[in-house]
């Protein structure tokens, strides 16, 4: 998988997270996986289809999701209820919308699905014939992994 695909998502995530959560954001080491990967407790999933195709996952623990949703709402959420899920969905929306503009400028054209939220324990994701690139982003609420598996359509 080409690294050009993931950079716009990481840059957009930095911009948006900085704006909604504050300034303390660090980037972890990028890594590549070609097999199944464990998914943490909460994952926002966005599909891409066009001259590139695949999916992006914003993956975090339930504690991190709750802390982020609480911060964005200005109130403490103790469970990931409809409002909490809508908040994480909106976060994924804002990041992908901005990343897509950058990718379109680079000549990639594709449509996005609305984000879907997965929650649960012991989940994993498998991408057939596409490797996933993962960039962990660390905010004060915890770690969000930006997990991108995209390929050119043949």
């Amino acid at each position: 998988m080409r690294v050009e695909y993931i950079n716009p998502f990481v840059e957009a995530a930095f911009d948006i997270l900085k704006e909604v959560l504050g300034n303390d954001i660090q980037r972890g080491e990028l890594y590549l996986k070609s097999t199944s990967q464990a998914v943490q407790g909460v994952a926002a999933f966005v599909g891409l289809a066009g001259n590139v195709e695949g999916r992006v996952l914003f993956d975090m623990s339930m504690e991190t999701a709750l802390a982020i949703a609480s911060e964005m709402n200005g109130e403490t959420l103790t469970e990931l209820d409809d409002l909490g899920k809508a908040t994480i969905t909106e976060l994924a929306n804002m990041i992908t919308a901005q990343a897509v503009t950058k990718l379109h400028d680079l000549g990639f054209t594709f449509d996005l699905t609305p984000p879907a939220i997965f929650t649960g324990e012991n989940m994993e994701i498998t991408d057939n014939e596409v490797e996933a690139l993962i960039v962990p982003v660390i905010v004060k609420q915890g770690k969000i992994e930006i997990n991108v598996a995209v390929r050119e359509r043949t």
């Binding site: 709402n73 200005g74 409809d82 809508a86 969905t89 909106e90």
Partner: peptide
């Protein structure tokens, strides 16, 4: 369509 955004704008 987002409950979160509706709430944010309303607030």
């Amino acid at each position: 369509d987002s409950m979160f955004v509706k709430k944010q704008i309303s607030q």
